[in-house]
Amino acid sequence: MRKVLVKLDSHPYFPDVWFTNSRVLYAQQVSKIRQDPAARDIDDLAGVVSSNDSRSQMVVGIFVGDSYVLVHELSHAVINVFHAIGMDANTVTTEAFAYLMESFYRQCTDHLNAWSVSNA
């Protein structure tokens, strides 16, 4: 599978959400969005999300092909978006949460499928 970094569409919200399947590209992007990127060992992680302090920029890294890891990490990303825009995740905002989660999941799986095919 090709290793790629892409920016996800988070419309109608403003935060920048980057997605990658590469530990190297993940670390490079984290160093761009954080003034003090934590020297975190991600070699043993299946997936991870890092953000800047305001959570207006984040990187989602998925390093295995398991959909449950993608769902887990994307839930962190959606919570970060909600934090950045000042929206609580609760029963009132559940529809907004679900739509953004669905959008991120669709975009990520489309990218993962394209990256897999383009390497065949």
Rank of each mutant, 00 (worst) to 15 (best):
1 M>Q: 04
1 M>K: 09
1 M>F: 05
2 R>I: 09
2 R>E: 05
2 R>F: 09
4 V>N: 01
4 V>F: 04
6 V>Q: 07
7 K>E: 09
7 K>M: 07
9 D>K: 11
12 P>L: 04
13 Y>G: 01
15 P>R: 01
15 P>S: 00
15 P>M: 00
16 D>T: 08
18 W>G: 00
18 W>E: 00
20 T>I: 02
21 N>W: 07
22 S>N: 03
22 S>Y: 01
23 R>W: 04
23 R>D: 00
23 R>P: 09
24 V>N: 02
25 L>Q: 09
25 L>K: 15
26 Y>F: 15
26 Y>C: 00
27 A>P: 04
27 A>T: 15
29 Q>F: 03
30 V>T: 10
30 V>A: 05
31 S>K: 15
31 S>N: 07
31 S>A: 15
32 K>V: 12
33 I>Q: 04
33 I>F: 01
33 I>N: 08
35 Q>K: 15
35 Q>P: 11
37 P>F: 06
37 P>Y: 07
38 A>R: 15
38 A>N: 13
39 A>F: 15
39 A>S: 15
40 R>D: 08
41 D>Y: 14
42 I>E: 06
43 D>C: 05
44 D>A: 13
44 D>H: 13
45 L>M: 12
45 L>H: 10
45 L>Y: 10
45 L>C: 08
47 G>L: 01
49 V>M: 06
50 S>K: 10
51 S>P: 08
51 S>G: 05
52 N>S: 02
53 D>M: 06
54 S>M: 02
55 R>T: 03
56 S>M: 07
57 Q>M: 04
57 Q>F: 00
57 Q>S: 09
58 M>Y: 03
59 V>R: 03
61 G>C: 03
63 F>E: 03
65 G>E: 11
65 G>W: 07
65 G>S: 11
68 Y>D: 13
68 Y>V: 12
68 Y>T: 14
69 V>F: 04
69 V>Y: 01
70 L>N: 00
71 V>K: 11
71 V>A: 11
72 H>K: 11
72 H>W: 02
73 E>Y: 05
73 E>C: 04
74 L>I: 13
74 L>M: 11
74 L>R: 02
74 L>Y: 09
75 S>H: 09
75 S>R: 13
77 A>H: 07
77 A>R: 04
79 I>T: 10
80 N>L: 03
80 N>R: 13
81 V>D: 00
82 F>P: 01
82 F>M: 05
83 H>P: 00
83 H>V: 06
83 H>A: 07
84 A>G: 03
85 I>S: 04
85 I>L: 06
87 M>F: 05
87 M>E: 08
89 A>Q: 09
90 N>W: 06
90 N>L: 08
91 T>E: 12
91 T>P: 10
92 V>D: 14
95 E>C: 10
95 E>A: 14
96 A>L: 14
96 A>V: 12
96 A>S: 13
97 F>G: 04
100 L>F: 03
101 M>R: 13
102 E>L: 12
104 F>A: 08
104 F>K: 09
104 F>D: 03
106 R>T: 15
108 C>R: 04
108 C>L: 10
109 T>G: 03
112 L>T: 06
112 L>V: 11
113 N>I: 12
114 A>C: 10
116 S>D: 09
117 V>C: 10
117 V>N: 11
117 V>M: 10
117 V>E: 10
118 S>Q: 13
118 S>P: 02
119 N>W: 12
120 A>K: 14
120 A>S: 15
